[in-house]
Nucleic acid binder design. Sequence first.
DNA 1: GTCTATAGCTGGATAGAC
DNA 2: GTCTATCCAGCTATAGAC
Lengths: 187, 187
Amino acid sequence: MKESATKARILDVASRLFYDQGYNSTGINQIIEEADIAKASLYNHFPSKRDLLAAYIQKAEESWFDKMNTYLEPFKDPKAKLLALFDFRVDHQIANNFAGCQFTKISAEVPKDDLRAFELVGHQKNLVKAFITEQLAQIKLGQPQVLSKEMLADTFFLMLEGASVAAGVYKDASAIKKAKAIAEKLL
Amino acid sequence: MKESATKARILDVASRLFYDQGYNSTGINQIIEEADIAKASLYNHFPSKRDLLAAYIQKAEESWFDKMNTYLEPFKDPKAKLLALFDFRVDHQIANNFAGCQFTKISAEVPKDDLRAFELVGHQKNLVKAFITEQLAQIKLGQPQVLSKEMLADTFFLMLEGASVAAGVYKDASAIKKAKAIAEKLL
DNA sequence: GTCTATAGCTGGATAGAC
DNA sequence: GTCTATCCAGCTATAGAC
């Protein structure tokens, strides 16, 4: 069931360019040139650019959670793990020159009739939200709490989403750091 | 100092199309066709598509705050006014078919060397943040507060940013409504 | 499954007449 | 300042040989 090396290389190159330049600004021609393959080979593996986009989002989701899990692995305490998620996103933004969230970017530039893309982006965000909820379930909170655990999960998730946007707009990670400080107060 | 009707019409058409289809997916050809003018007329008023984008963002900022002020005008109490900001964004997303925040969209799809665009988007977001801070300054909070007013401003701003992204991804306003419910608890 | 070659179109931008 | 006409580079996608 091993996928061809050609297909993997196409996806690697496309992933880099889609995130770096944007999906719409990256042409098939550039992808095949940098992957050093023929145009028809690309269309052999991916029937259309839209299909390549779908494959990109799925691969990016996998890669994103791999990196997240590696980063969070040392933290055993659920509260520390949850707070480290903010640090992970700071690091990730620095590593990617403050390009913003790659999934949010896709949903912002994709034509609105590409329902598949929105669904795949939503899937990644659902998993992030689920991770936050999972950690919160294991945290013992002091009494009395202003916000329920469900509301805390929404707060953290939405702040992270917003802070990632801010990172892309302002080209710095200060919003993510502020969000972490707020999260610490709320826990 | 009145601007020509041609220029205004170009900007009107471009604004609609940029938001609806995206900046990259909207060609000069479509703009001149729908505005019913010649290509050279467009380039007479806007030296490049990038300049047209800059004009679009500025006009959109103005229009956005006009609509916001109109919506919030009936609310005299600062707390009610601040909470109504969430409702305004729900309404705005519904009115725009859950296309997400138009400013965030631009920052997500513009080439990364278009510093002017990032700056103009940042300007709009600064104003939103300032409005939130302004309202909070007039609100008398109960004691003791977990979050300072500065942190509350960040929380509300980031949640609104994140919830607008979520509205665009999931095509519904539930995240904005959840953010409002959280804000009510925190005030 | 990979290649070369090209179709068919649209992109942003300009020249020159009026 | 608006028009027509056009340039050329880029786009997605396909045909057909090997």
